[in-house]
Protein backbone atom coordinates (compact mmCIF):
# COMPACT_ATOMS: atom_id res chain seq x y z
CA UNK A 1 0.00 0.00 0.00
CA UNK A 2 1.27 3.44 -0.89
CA UNK A 3 0.61 6.66 1.03
CA UNK A 4 0.56 9.88 -0.98
CA UNK A 5 1.16 12.65 1.51
CA UNK A 6 0.72 16.36 0.85
CA UNK A 7 2.18 18.87 3.29
CA UNK A 8 1.05 22.46 2.97
CA UNK A 9 1.67 25.66 4.90
CA UNK A 10 -1.13 26.72 7.21
CA UNK A 11 -3.16 29.77 6.30
CA UNK A 12 -1.53 32.93 7.58
CA UNK A 13 2.00 31.50 7.51
CA UNK A 14 4.14 33.58 5.16
CA UNK A 15 5.53 31.67 2.20
CA UNK A 16 8.42 33.64 0.72
CA UNK A 17 9.21 30.80 -1.70
CA UNK A 18 5.65 30.81 -3.01
CA UNK A 19 5.91 34.57 -3.38
CA UNK A 20 9.15 34.26 -5.38
CA UNK A 21 7.54 31.64 -7.64
CA UNK A 22 4.58 33.96 -8.15
CA UNK A 23 6.90 36.79 -9.13
CA UNK A 24 8.83 34.53 -11.52
CA UNK A 25 5.61 33.36 -13.17
CA UNK A 26 4.58 37.01 -13.49
CA UNK A 27 7.88 37.88 -15.16
CA UNK A 28 7.33 35.02 -17.61
CA UNK A 29 4.12 36.72 -18.68
CA UNK A 30 1.60 34.63 -16.77
CA UNK A 31 -1.08 37.01 -15.60
CA UNK A 32 -3.98 36.74 -13.20
CA UNK A 33 -2.12 34.79 -10.50
CA UNK A 34 -3.67 35.63 -7.15
CA UNK A 35 -1.37 33.57 -4.96
CA UNK A 36 1.18 30.74 -5.07
CA UNK A 37 1.78 28.49 -2.06
CA UNK A 38 4.56 25.91 -2.09
CA UNK A 39 4.29 22.61 -0.25
CA UNK A 40 5.79 19.11 -0.20
CA UNK A 41 4.65 15.82 -1.66
CA UNK A 42 5.94 12.58 -0.14
CA UNK A 43 5.23 8.97 -1.12
CA UNK A 44 5.70 6.20 1.41
CA UNK A 45 5.46 2.54 0.39
CA UNK A 46 4.06 0.43 3.20
CA UNK A 47 4.14 -3.33 3.65
CA UNK A 48 0.90 -3.00 5.63
CA UNK A 49 -2.20 -4.24 3.82
CA UNK A 50 -4.81 -3.28 6.41
CA UNK A 51 -6.11 0.18 5.59
CA UNK A 52 -7.03 1.20 9.13
CA UNK A 53 -3.61 0.23 10.46
CA UNK A 54 -1.88 1.99 7.56
CA UNK A 55 -3.91 5.14 8.11
CA UNK A 56 -2.92 5.18 11.79
CA UNK A 57 0.76 4.63 10.96
CA UNK A 58 0.91 7.36 8.32
CA UNK A 59 -0.92 9.75 10.62
CA UNK A 60 1.74 9.23 13.27
CA UNK A 61 4.53 9.59 10.69
CA UNK A 62 3.10 12.95 9.67
CA UNK A 63 2.67 14.22 13.22
CA UNK A 64 6.06 12.99 14.48
CA UNK A 65 8.31 13.91 11.57
CA UNK A 66 6.95 14.66 8.12
CA UNK A 67 4.99 17.81 9.03
CA UNK A 68 5.75 20.52 11.56
CA UNK A 69 2.35 21.19 13.06
CA UNK A 70 3.35 24.73 14.07
CA UNK A 71 3.29 25.87 10.45
CA UNK A 72 2.09 22.96 8.32
CA UNK A 73 -1.01 20.89 7.62
CA UNK A 74 -0.94 17.45 6.08
CA UNK A 75 -3.35 15.27 4.17
CA UNK A 76 -2.83 11.87 2.62
CA UNK A 77 -4.50 9.17 0.58
CA UNK A 78 -3.76 5.47 0.50
CA UNK A 79 -3.59 3.67 -2.80
CA UNK A 80 -3.12 -0.04 -3.42
Amino acid sequence: MKARIKITLKNGVLDPQGKAIQNALGSLGFTGIEEVRQGKYIEVDLAESDETAARDTVDRMCKNLLANMVIENYAFELVT
Binding site: V13, L14, P16, V70, I71
Partner: peptide
Protein backbone atom coordinates in the same frame (compact mmCIF):
# COMPACT_ATOMS: atom_id res chain seq x y z
CA UNK B 1 9.94 27.17 14.16
CA UNK B 2 12.72 28.77 12.10
CA UNK B 3 11.50 29.30 8.56
CA UNK B 4 13.30 30.28 5.36
CA UNK B 5 14.59 33.86 5.56
CA UNK B 6 11.97 36.28 4.27
CA UNK B 7 14.48 37.57 1.69
CA UNK B 8 15.15 33.98 0.52
Amino acid sequence: VLQRNASL
